[in-house]
Write a protein that binds this DNA or RNA. Structure first.
Lengths: 205, 205
DNA sequence: CGGTGAGAGTAGACACTGGCAACATTGTTG
DNA sequence: CAACAATGTTGCCAGTGTCTACTCTCACCG
């Protein structure tokens, strides 16, 4: 028996995905700053230069991580909204959206920070597109609301962006320790409520 | 002649402040990630281990930077609000507050990102306190508004946090390239307007 | 005075990192 | 089956943060 471990083939097979998996674990455990390519290579059982075949750069790997993060976030947001069966209940859907975002951001704090970080590749349109697709969803929600007359206002995309930014800001403050977790629930509630009050047509009922 | 440069005294005199200044320049030029202690030491003309006498750690220096950032931001916000002479014009004051925040965050993008980063020292209460003091200001603004009956709502601190989070989120999205600079102005406007509409007492006049 | 610490800066070492180049091993395909 | 493109490997380099041991200076105290 030549080596103690079972014979590992020269070609790993799916290094790229395995690296991303390891990267996500590392991200969760120690944050983006501490993430080391060589560390990941060791985790996966491959030489220190192997990752370079799949990611030109440390940044490139982080960008890939961010992009997949946006995709997953997008799915979860969509699922949360769709789960509210009643298509007419805009408040409920908005609330579901916000809650889902907050849940994702707290369960994946380091990932979320990475996604919102400014240091993406200059040319990396992929992550920007994924981000746009993600928060474009809420624009659709708003538009529907406006078409049914539940909301007024100008540009639905603009209105959507504002509420998206609000939730993003809340989670950012939470993850940076500026607000206590206990206040989260209430904060999101008032944010959505305030927003709906502000966006409803002039005459109440 | 022993050295070409004029005789530099063994003791630098005010290394700490000079390091922080150099750090801020580096931050502005190349971001927090690229900031290197040895680089700063070279900039200031001191040996690579000298910074350690003033900052136990790279993190410690970044924390100090963040803390001073919060202090400066706080001053600018206060000044902007005070500049609106009319104490009764809450919308104007709110708008001034938001605009001042956005200006700071765009003019000091990397610093702002650092301030909102989650990776502060576990024990570093200083930065947390500075942050709290900063966005506590808006709570006061809200409270005044409520006392004069211009606003309704529950906890003024909570309401204040929501609007603060909104502006923070908008600038975060801007700095990470999710929204174009051109939309900034409009976004902040609708954010404040929406907020005021949502927070005003039930019967419009 | 004059010596003696404590504070502040220096020099060197260590373990680590990301990136590069040259080489080795595969799977594929003409 | 030979050539080739992918994919991994080894070795190297410049840089970094941190630690330890040493040196310089100044202020204070006997």
């Amino acid at each position: 028996m030549p080596d103690t471990t079972e014979r590992r083939p020269y070609h790993h097979g799916n290094l790229r995905t395995d690296l991303l998996d390891a990267a996500e674990r590392s991200l969760r455990a120690r944050g983006a700053e501490q993430l080391s390519l060589r560390d990941l290579a060791r985790d996966v059982g491959v030489s220190h230069a192997a990752p370079r075949r799949h990611f030109a750069d440390r940044r490139a790997l982080l960008d890939a991580l961010a992009e997949s993060g946006f995709r997953r976030l997008g799915e979860q947001l969509r699922a949360a909204v769709d789960e509210i069966g009643d298509e007419d209940d805009l408040p409920a859907r908005l609330h579901a959206f916000a809650s889902a975002y907050v849940r994702f951001a707290t369960e994946n704090a380091a990932l979320t920070e990475l996604m919102n970080s400014s240091k993406h590749r200059p040319g990396a349109t992929a992550v920007a597109e994924a981000a746009a697709a993600t928060f474009g969803q809420i624009g659709d929600l708003i538009k529907e609301g406006q078409e049914r007359g539940e909301l007024e206002g100008d540009d639905p995309a603009e209105t959507g962006l504002v509420i998206y930014a609000t939730v993003l800001g809340i989670t950012s403050m939470l993850n940076s320790g500026m607000i206590e977790p206990a206040r989260l629930e209430g904060l999101v509630g008032t944010a959505v409520t305030q927003f709906l009050r502000g966006a409803r047509p002039a005459e109440p009922r």
